[in-house]
Amino acid sequence: MTTLTTVKDSLIVIMGVSGTGKSSLAQQIATDLEAEYVDADDHHSDEAKEMMSAGIPLNDGIRDAWITRLKRHILATLGNHQSCVLAYSGLKTRQRKRIIDCSKNTQCFLLDVPYAILEQRLASRTQFEGHFFNPDLLQSQFDSFEAITPDENVHKLDGTLKLETLSQIVLNKLLS
Results as ranks from 00 to 15, higher is better:
28 Q>N: 12
96 R>F: 08
36 E>I: 12
28 Q>M: 14
26 A>V: 13
57 P>F: 01
94 R>E: 15
56 I>A: 04
57 P>V: 12
54 A>Y: 04
40 A>G: 04
67 I>K: 00
52 M>E: 09
42 D>Q: 07
66 W>G: 00
91 L>C: 12
90 G>D: 11
88 Y>A: 13
79 G>I: 10
29 I>E: 01
82 Q>L: 12
63 R>L: 06
95 Q>V: 10
94 R>C: 12
29 I>W: 00
93 T>Q: 11
40 A>E: 00
65 A>T: 15
92 K>R: 10
85 V>S: 05
45 S>W: 01
36 E>D: 12
48 A>I: 13
37 Y>C: 09
87 A>M: 09
41 D>K: 00
62 I>W: 00
73 H>M: 07
41 D>N: 06
30 A>N: 03
31 T>E: 09
81 H>L: 13
89 S>H: 06
90 G>Y: 04
76 A>V: 13
33 L>E: 06
39 D>S: 11
40 A>S: 01
77 T>N: 02
82 Q>N: 14
45 S>K: 01
47 E>C: 09
79 G>W: 01
91 L>D: 10
78 L>A: 06
92 K>C: 07
33 L>R: 01
89 S>V: 15
81 H>I: 15
58 L>R: 03
37 Y>D: 09
87 A>T: 14
41 D>G: 05
84 C>V: 15
46 D>C: 03
91 L>Y: 06
42 D>C: 05
87 A>C: 09
68 T>C: 04
30 A>H: 01
31 T>Y: 02
90 G>V: 13
48 A>H: 03
55 G>Y: 04
90 G>E: 10
41 D>V: 07
47 E>D: 14
96 R>D: 11
48 A>E: 06
72 R>G: 12
35 A>K: 00
83 S>R: 02
52 M>W: 02
49 K>Y: 05
86 L>G: 10
30 A>G: 08
87 A>Y: 02
25 L>N: 03
62 I>V: 15
89 S>G: 13
38 V>L: 05
62 I>E: 06
96 R>W: 04
84 C>S: 09
75 L>F: 03
36 E>Y: 05
69 R>W: 02
53 S>N: 13
66 W>F: 06
88 Y>T: 15
64 D>E: 14
32 D>L: 07
62 I>Q: 02
30 A>P: 04
31 T>C: 03
94 R>A: 14
96 R>A: 09
64 D>N: 11
71 K>T: 15
41 D>L: 01
27 Q>P: 05
83 S>D: 12
82 Q>Y: 07
42 D>L: 05
33 L>F: 04
65 A>D: 14
47 E>G: 10
56 I>G: 02
76 A>R: 08
81 H>P: 09
50 E>S: 13
72 R>Q: 14
72 R>D: 14
40 A>H: 00
70 L>N: 03
86 L>W: 04
64 D>T: 15
46 D>Q: 11
77 T>K: 01
78 L>P: 06
86 L>E: 10
37 Y>S: 03
58 L>E: 09
72 R>T: 15
95 Q>Y: 08
60 D>S: 08
91 L>S: 06
54 A>H: 09
78 L>C: 04
42 D>G: 11
44 H>K: 00
51 M>L: 12
37 Y>H: 08
57 P>L: 03
43 H>R: 00
47 E>Y: 06
36 E>V: 13
66 W>K: 01
84 C>L: 12
95 Q>T: 11
46 D>W: 00
78 L>H: 02
39 D>T: 03
62 I>F: 00
36 E>T: 14
29 I>Q: 01
57 P>R: 04
